[in-house]
């Protein structure tokens, strides 16, 4: 049994997930909580936002984010991977700055024009 807080809406229901019973969720007020609780234990994912180096722009750092959520366990490795990226201006909002981050199939995109 694991207790967690649903983050899908401001109610923040306290969920209990039963790993031994096919990840059955209790404590949720709506269906979204059940889906969240299950995913959170089976394969928790997060969108990663960070910055990468950029030359020749008004700022030295370009804000970037993963286009989709990636497995939570890969967050720190992803940050290391992104430390290797070095951009040169101009880069546009939405441009892919790194493809297929750590084999997740998820691209990393620029978050602004620089």
């Amino acid at each position: 049994m694991t207790e967690l807080t649903c983050i899908c809406c401001p109610m923040g229901c306290r969920l209990t997930v039963d790993e031994d019973n096919d990840y059955a969720v209790t404590g949720n007020t709506c269906k979204r909580g059940a889906v969240y609780g299950r995913n959170e234990l089976m394969n928790p994912t997060r969108v990663l936002t960070t910055t990468v180096a950029i030359d020749g722009a008004a700022h030295g750092r370009m804000p970037v984010r993963t286009e989709d959520a990636i497995p939570k366990g890969k967050l720190f490795d992803a940050i290391e991977e992104l430390k290797k990226v070095h951009l040169t201006s101009p880069v546009h909002c939405g441009d892919v700055v790194l493809e297929n981050l750590l084999g997740t199939g998820v691209n990393v995109i620029a978050s602004r024009d620089l």
Partner: peptide, 10 residues
């Protein structure tokens, strides 16, 4: 959509 701050400003 769930955007970052700079993207929303953009």
């Amino acid at each position: 959509e769930e955007l970052s701050g700079p993207e929303y400003a953009h």
